[in-house]
């Protein structure tokens, strides 16, 4: 499983990560290694096998439609690097 430079850069972009020119080869090689290792699962016969969704067989876990206000709203804002009027400040979005 060969991973091209373009592919690594595309994946990094989807993940909002920056990979520097001098890191590309290493990331590509690490990804190739693990993908080659992961190929092993292709030898498992999964004909007619359903994919797992979740770990337990929990179904219909619902919550009642009742308002419960979170008490410490200040604490929700305290970790922001920049805030203004109780909102999170970011560079202008066009």
């Amino acid at each position: 499983m060969a991973v091209s430079k373009e592919e690594i850069l595309h994946i990094a972009k989807l993940a909002d990560l920056k990979i520097e020119e001098n890191e590309i080869d290493e990331y590509a090689k690490n990804l190739e290694d693990i993908l080659n290792f992961a190929q092993i699962i292709n030898s498992v016969d999964t004909e007619n096998v359903k994919e797992s969704i979740g770990t337990l067989n929990n179904v219909n876990v619902f919550r009642k439609d009742e308002v419960k206000e979170f008490e410490d709203k200040e604490a929700l804002l305290q970790n922001a690097t920049e805030q203004e009027d109780g909102m999170f400040r970011i560079p202008k979005v066009i």
Binding site: I11, L14, K50
Partner: peptide
């Protein structure tokens, strides 16, 4: 990100979830 991305999802993620069932 790679195993979920378009074109690889079935071969990796979906396959892995089937193996998980086994």
């Amino acid at each position: 990100t790679y195993v979920l991305s378009s074109g690889y999802y079935d071969a990796y993620y979906k396959k892995a979830q089937k193996v998980r069932t086994l």
